[in-house]
Design a protein around this nucleic acid. Sequence first.
DNA 1: GTCTATAGCGAGATAGAC
DNA 2: GTCTATCTCGCTATAGAC
Lengths: 195, 195
Amino acid sequence: MARKKNSSAETTRPRIREAALRLFARHGYAAVSMRQIATEVGVQAGTLYLYTADKQTLLFDLMQAHMQDLLAALAALPAQDDPLAALEQFTRFHLRHHRARQDAVFISYMELRNLEPENFERIEAMRRAYEAHLAGILARGKATGTFDLPDAKLAAYALIAMLTGVTTWYREGGPLSLARVEDIYWDMVQKAVGA
Amino acid sequence: MARKKNSSAETTRPRIREAALRLFARHGYAAVSMRQIATEVGVQAGTLYLYTADKQTLLFDLMQAHMQDLLAALAALPAQDDPLAALEQFTRFHLRHHRARQDAVFISYMELRNLEPENFERIEAMRRAYEAHLAGILARGKATGTFDLPDAKLAAYALIAMLTGVTTWYREGGPLSLARVEDIYWDMVQKAVGA
DNA sequence: GTCTATAGCGAGATAGAC
DNA sequence: GTCTATCTCGCTATAGAC
């Protein structure tokens, strides 16, 4: 008897994605059951399969959406001829974007190993494209003498790791404002590349 | 009395730890079954419980051993009065130590969320002690004017994230030797703190 | 579109033979 | 010290009612 009428499929889909994102980030993909996700959304476990083929596809869709979002936001930034300006723009963009999406960032790094090979390759390719963008800025700056660094690609890895690390310790309401954190990181980035 | 022990018992314990470390790092704690670990070792699942109380304890023991190993190795380094020398020593030590223990490093960061609260606190305390060591070097260097940085604690977070990142991309047999990678990172670290 | 119910499986952990 | 056998539980995914 008593089944929920009047529920909107329009809102159930995003609610499933939000619940899965939060739970996967908090406990890990393998540790979260479809039942937990359903409970969080307020539906029965079987209902989830109206919206996703299976658990793996749900994970992949979350990661793919995150990476597409990231690359689209990067592409939407205004072009910068000056390597130093481009690096500052990238630094601040990366910090802001990642900080605002801690759960998705965490999952997209952490759950790579839980993707089936084909899905893994597709996500990895997008991640490489993002890294290549920064490496390109650094290589240009190195060529023009704006930067002084031994290896542009390695520096790109190092800087991205440094910047992404902010998601592991920064908490809203702490002693430092996000703007201040941005300035401090930009100061270190700038120096690290010998600008 | 001194009844002679079965010879394989001496080797089974470390073999369990090695198998668990490798499998947890590769697939994640929650995704690995006790049966898989047992198969890897070449024993039956029930045999594992001769060596560990349960799966959670096995994870905690691996992480605790890793952190104790890290702190002991850090404490064994020769004292350095000069902040710059201390920073270089720390940088090279961190890279070498983490690079040689990729699986344990990965687990100790990734599986924190799968620890029960009490176990989590104990591991976190050791991680904070390690961070505090670097923050101390930076604060001393800032006080003496050797370094130019806005925030020693934040810089410690940033540098550790940057250095630990090497474990995600460095592969033996790649184009760069570990010594070369060390030199490149040390170059960036040095510049980043305004030395 | 969501529910109840369940099939089918594999998990963690334990008991007792050898 | 290790094995076989098993208990009990919770999981993913599906079927069919409403």
